[in-house]
């Protein structure tokens, strides 16, 4: 049961990774691309971690997966703001329809 749930989570994670890449390629400017990365990719990694944790029966290893995800999510969220701020400061104006 947890095997199946893990597989579902991992597959969902892979799909979110795909959507992050598609967003990175299709979105019109750096700010919109940052949206794609900071949301889709962090969640995608979280789903992969959760899926693997379900396949795991060692508590410390499950928490290690959680720790890895937390590190990436904290870095990702901060870096998104840093890049956005730097881009604005360099006079890159957000794309508008």
């Amino acid at each position: 049961m947890s095997m199946l749930a893990g597989i579902v989570l991992i597959v969902l994670g892979l799909l979110f990774f795909l959507s992050g890449t598609v967003g990175l390629l299709r979105f019109p400017d750096v700010f919109t691309r940052l949206h794609a990365l900071s949301k889709a990719d962090t969640l995608a990694l979280g789903l992969v971690c959760a899926g693997l944790a379900l396949h795991e029966d060692d508590g410390a290893l499950q928490l290690k997966l959680l720790l890895i995800w937390l590190l990436v999510i904290v870095s990702g969220a901060t870096c998104a703001s840093l890049i956005a701020r730097a881009a604005l400061a360099h006079g890159i104006r957000p794309w508008q329809r």
Partner: peptide
């Protein structure tokens, strides 16, 4: 977080929808 990722995914995958930032 789930909703945010879903929205971005739909916007990225949808053939015609574009962001309106």
């Amino acid at each position: 977080n789930l909703r945010g990722a879903m929205e971005v995914a739909v916007l990225a995958m949808h053939p015609r929808r574009r962001p309106d930032p």
